[in-house]
Write a protein that binds this DNA or RNA. Sequence first.
DNA 1: GTCATAATCCTAACACTGTAAAGATAAATA
DNA 2: TATTTATCTTTACAGTGTTAGGATTATGAC
Lengths: 198, 198
Amino acid sequence: MPPRPKKPRKSYHHGDLRNALLKAAREVLEERGPSHLALREISRRVGVSAPSAYHHFPSRDALALGLAEQGAHEMAEALMVKPGEGQDILMPYGEAYVAFARANPALYRLMFGEGFPAVSRYSEAVRELRQRSYDIMKSALEKRMPAEAVPIAGLFLWAIVHGLGLLLIDGQLENNDTSKDIVHQVLKLAGTGLAPRT
Amino acid sequence: MPPRPKKPRKSYHHGDLRNALLKAAREVLEERGPSHLALREISRRVGVSAPSAYHHFPSRDALALGLAEQGAHEMAEALMVKPGEGQDILMPYGEAYVAFARANPALYRLMFGEGFPAVSRYSEAVRELRQRSYDIMKSALEKRMPAEAVPIAGLFLWAIVHGLGLLLIDGQLENNDTSKDIVHQVLKLAGTGLAPRT
DNA sequence: GTCATAATCCTAACACTGTAAAGATAAATA
DNA sequence: TATTTATCTTTACAGTGTTAGGATTATGAC
């Protein structure tokens, strides 16, 4: 294996530029937000000229997509939680979802925001990752309701955690307490909505 | 009243540049999305040099904020709906909310997205507008549950319509039918969650 | 080991962007 | 009418994404 210098590059070739760019991009992303994800700034941090990046990503947006795919992996990991008991069967999933958004606000916005308006722009691998996360929730839902009700219930739950996560990370909540407790309470309400009709 | 030329400006002074800029900005916003809301492009459309805008807005972001405030007015208007009956008391509100987001996707993202991460950046007038819209929902909620449950229920409902609206306008829903019917069904589920505990 | 080729990096340049500075024009006011 | 003030202008600077073409190094064939 060839030697791969970390930061103070000696050789003309970097050796691992693609990953280095992604790493720096991730930093810029969380520091400055998705809209200030500048390719030149990223290259500068890595210590390389801006056009070099084009040997590894065809455009700035492609680099952003790389970050989003990375995010999809991490998110799928974070959502692999054991279901709760009874009424709260979906509580761990919902809490993990919102927690991930709050822990990685810029990444979350990048993944679901204006940048990638259509799922179709993601790679097949990412779509599979998303499906896998979704399936965890679906299988929990199937224990609580007939199969035909699952799609709408899934969308219902996704809308809640997505909306709640974004409201929290975008600071839209006036002066409400934004503690984890609020998330729990909202999800509790959602659980009631998902209770099997009697 | 001085003559106010519409488009082909004859006089050196425009006469109504501030409004003209906002109008052009609105067009650019819906055509190209919030992240491509370029001050130069807007000025160009109005037929004026870019720095002229700085006599009416201190920065590009200030112009964007002007659009967001305009959006707050329109949204408050759109949410002034009569409550439904019984279980569906919040249905008209929820449907109007999602419908507004879908009818003005870029504007909605601008209002609630990265650009204005904190409510505190809005003017007092806008905060009042938002409060007024929120109060409509709150008063409907108060008919269905004890007062102490209203804040969480309000957040719950807001999260749903916010999340559902964004998932729809960002095209995140795989191949689901994105008809109005889906919105109705999800809101129906939410209504069950909001039912008074027995 | 030598050499050609391909991959990777560079600089220079172009068309954009937001914004500041300083000057020209017209409207408002005294 | 003269002066002040508001509005719009050109010019300029630093930043952006991206392309073109040249320099350097690693790779693979002989």
